[in-house]
């Protein structure tokens, strides 16, 4: 998936995202409530969400679990220094692993930061996370020159993706 691809979101789409990004209202007809809030026809909210799901602007609509509450308290950000020639192909393999929730290529920042691939690994314990990271290391083999795991020691702020610089109403 390439980030160059564009998603045309008009004002109505943006207002729907802004109104629902902190969650759908907990009522039996949530989309109608959103439509009423925004002064839009009832079915338009459903139609637009469907279209954004189709285009990929919205990845999914569903329940968003809090991993910490469910005991997945060891969240390890594994970072890898992978050969530039191989990183895209290997990234696809690592990103498809069941225990990897996010996998991205990012720029290095030498000399402080030699890593170009990030894979977020979740587990109940650090031992579990480390086993999974060992498995990733095996898959990457010599293509990865070095790697590291950064555990979060403290969540200081966590909210969903927000549209910035736009009013919420």
């Amino acid at each position: 998936m390439n980030i160059q691809s564009t998603f045309e979101l008009d004002k109505i789409d943006q207002r729907i995202i802004a109104a629902t990004q902190e969650g759908l209202p907990l009522v039996s007809k949530p989309y109608e409530t959103v439509a009423k809030m925004l002064g839009l026809p009832n079915d338009l909210v459903i139609e637009r969400l469907e279209a954004m799901l189709q285009s990929g602007a919205i990845r999914r609509i569903g329940v968003v679990p809090n991993h910490y509450k469910l005991g997945f308290t060891a969240n390890g950000m594994s970072v890898w220094d992978v050969d530039n020639e191989l990183v895209d192909e290997l990234g696809d393999t690592i990103g498809a692993l069941e225990y990897v929730s996010h996998c991205y290529r990012r720029p290095r920042h030498l000399p402080l930061w030699p890593y170009n691939m990030f894979a977020m690994v979740h587990g109940r314990t650090r031992i579990e996370v480390e086993e999974k990271i060992e498995a990733i290391a095996k898959i990457l083999g010599p293509a990865s020159r070095q790697h590291n795991v950064l555990y979060s020691t403290k969540i200081l702020k966590k909210t969903g993706v927000r549209l910035c610089g736009r009013s919420k109403d």
């Binding site: 995202i17 990004q21 902190e22 990845r59 469910l70 969903g160």
Partner: peptide, 10 residues
Amino acid sequence: VLSRIGAVVR
């Protein structure tokens, strides 16, 4: 257990 129900935006 659930932080919300809604869209996960790319």
